[in-house]
Amino acid sequence: MTTATTHGARDHARAQDGTEVEAMPRIPAPDGAVWAETVAGGNYTHKVLARGTEVRFTDLEGDACAHVLLYVADRPFERLNVADTVKVLWNAYPGAGHLLLSDQGRVLASVLAADVPVETVCGTSTLARNTARYGDGSPHGASPAGRELLKLAAAKNGLAPRDLPPSISFFKGVRVDPDDGRLTFENSSRPGASITLRAEMPLIVLVANTAHPVDPRPDYACTPLDVLARPGTPTRPDDPLWNSTPEARRAFLNTADHLTARGIA
C-alpha cells in the first residue's frame, strides 16, 4: 500500500484501525476506569483527573521509573512542591499514608498504598546529562531524557518549560548518606510492584517513564509502566489519614478551606 498520494495515505491510516500494541492507551478504559494505559520505557503520558480519583502505577517488568508532576487542573500555577512535601512532612522517603503537597500548603494527592520506593531528591534526567551518558537525550531518540518528555506532556496541557518544577519519582530509590550526603542508587522495584495515589484536588498529571538520572548502569534501562485510574472519594475529616499528624491535618484544612470557598468541597 502506497502513501505517496492522499488517498493512499488515507487508506494506510484507516488500515491501522483496531490495531493494538503492547504500549498504548486503552480507550474506552475498561471496567469503569477513567484512565487505562501502558506507557513504554522512554515515553510519556498525561491526564486531567477529577478530585477523588484513585490512580495506580504498576511496574510491569521490574525496571520502570515514573517521574511525576501534579498541577491543580484549573489553576496550574499551583503545583507539586517536592521540597515542601519533604520539609512539612519530615520525611524524604514518603510511602503509604503520606501526602504530596502543593507550593501553597495544600494536599494535591495522598498515597493510599505503596510497595515501591518514592524518590524525592534527584528529579528527572535532562537532555545534557542523557546526551553525555548515552549519546542522545532527545525526546524521540533512543534514550530520551525525562525533562524533554515532560516538556511534551506539559505543552499538551498549555504549560511551558518554565512550568516544570522538580518531579517526584516512583520505583527507583536513592538513599542519602547521613554522614557525607552521598547518594546511593537502589534498583529496588520488581515486576508487579505498584503505588496508588488519590487526587485530593482536580489534577493535571504528567508522567515520564524514563531511566533514573543516577542509575549507574551503562545502558539506558526502562521497561513499561501501567497506569489505571478509577473514580473515588477524596479524604474526609473522619478518615484517619486526615488527622495522622498535625502537619497532615493542617494541609487538609488548607485544602478544604480553599475548595469550600470555591464551592467545590
Rank of each mutant, 00 (worst) to 15 (best):
P224E: 05
A155R: 12
P25S: 07
L49Y: 00
V82T: 14
W35M: 01
T223K: 07
N43V: 09
V121S: 11
A208H: 02
A73C: 11
G42Y: 03
A13K: 12
A193E: 00
D103M: 13
G95S: 13
R26E: 07
A193S: 08
A9T: 09
Y93H: 13
R182G: 15
V72I: 09
F77V: 08
P25C: 06
G141V: 05
V86S: 11
R262L: 15
D84Q: 09
L197S: 06
I195T: 00
E200D: 08
A83F: 14
E247Q: 13
P161Y: 14
P165L: 10
E22S: 15
L206A: 06
D31I: 08
T5S: 12
E200K: 07
G263L: 12
G135H: 04
T38M: 02
P28F: 09
H67F: 02
F252T: 01
L253S: 11
L101E: 05
L99R: 04
T126F: 07
L228F: 03
V176P: 12
L241Y: 10
R79Q: 13
A153F: 02
S194I: 08
R262N: 15
L164F: 09
P234D: 09
L70A: 00
G123K: 07
G181W: 08
T6Q: 10
V214H: 08
P202C: 09
C122N: 11
V214N: 05
D215R: 05
H12L: 07
T58L: 01
V227T: 05
A109F: 01
P76L: 12
V68C: 05
D84V: 10
S102N: 06
G97A: 11
N157T: 09
